[in-house]
Amino acid sequence: MRQSSLTGGAIMFTGYLLFFIIMRALGLLEVVELRAINFIFLIAGVYTAISLEKKHLGWGFTYFQGLGAGIEATVLGVMPFAVFIFVYLSWIDPEFMVYIREHEPLGHYITPFMAAFVIVIEGCASGFISAYTIMQYVKAHTAHPHE
């Protein structure tokens, strides 16, 4: 496990969790559009992981090491948040699960496990694409000694 990925994943998870708590405190959990703000935390975590990996490896930094750090950070940030959502919907606030079932398309099929699973798929897909995109930028701005 890379320290850079742990740091990036921690940034991501902390951002997701704090934003969720703030949304709950303000009574905004039902405003689905606010979930787009999570992308900021995802980008911050992936970029941090790649930047730290590049700084740590110096001239030995390769494209795939940076991509791997970004993907690893994504998994480390998204998975614990998905577990939190599963616990939250199952035991902390099952009434919110009822709200989701009543107000979301195909909501009657959603369980706490399915909600957590969707977060994993959605978060990892976004993170993988973000890591690839950020690496295009980093690759273009990385000087190598033989150039």
Rank of each mutant, 00 (worst) to 15 (best):
V31G: 06
P80K: 02
E147H: 15
G58V: 10
G58L: 12
L76F: 15
H56Q: 11
L106G: 08
L28M: 14
G68N: 12
A36E: 07
V78G: 04
M12K: 00
H108T: 12
H146W: 13
I37A: 11
M1D: 02
E53R: 05
G60D: 14
I22G: 09
A25Q: 15
V78W: 02
L76C: 05
D93G: 07
I121W: 11
I11K: 00
I21P: 03
I121N: 07
M135Q: 04
I43N: 04
T7H: 01
I21E: 14
F39E: 13
F96M: 11
K139V: 05
S90C: 10
L34T: 09
Q3K: 08
E72P: 02
V138D: 01
I22E: 06
T7E: 03
A44Q: 01
R35G: 14
M135S: 03
V87W: 00
V78Y: 02
Y16P: 00
S5Y: 02
A25T: 13
M135T: 02
M97R: 02
P105L: 12
F64V: 10
A49G: 07
M114F: 15
I100P: 06
M23C: 09
T14C: 04
T7C: 05
F86P: 05
I71H: 02
L18G: 08
P105T: 13
P112I: 06
F117S: 09
Q3P: 06
H103G: 08
E30K: 12
F64W: 12
G60C: 08
L28E: 10
T142P: 02
I134F: 15
A116C: 09
L29W: 03
A143G: 11
G68F: 07
I119S: 02
I121D: 10
M23V: 06
T14A: 15
G9A: 03
G77V: 00
E72W: 04
Q136S: 12
K55Y: 11
M79K: 08
H56T: 14
A116V: 01
I92F: 03
G107T: 10
Y88F: 15
Q65Y: 13
S130H: 04
F13E: 01
A10M: 14
E53T: 13
V46F: 08
L67V: 13
H56R: 08
I50K: 03
S126G: 15
T14F: 02
Y63N: 06
G77D: 01
I40P: 06
V87M: 02
P94K: 12
F81C: 03
M23I: 04
S130R: 00
S130G: 05
T133F: 14
G58D: 04
H108N: 13
Y88M: 11
A36C: 07
E33S: 14
L106S: 12
T7W: 04
I11T: 00
I40K: 03
E147Y: 12
D93E: 15
V120F: 09
V138T: 00
F81A: 05
V98A: 14
G70R: 00
F64Y: 10
L89A: 06
L34D: 09
K139A: 10
W59I: 05
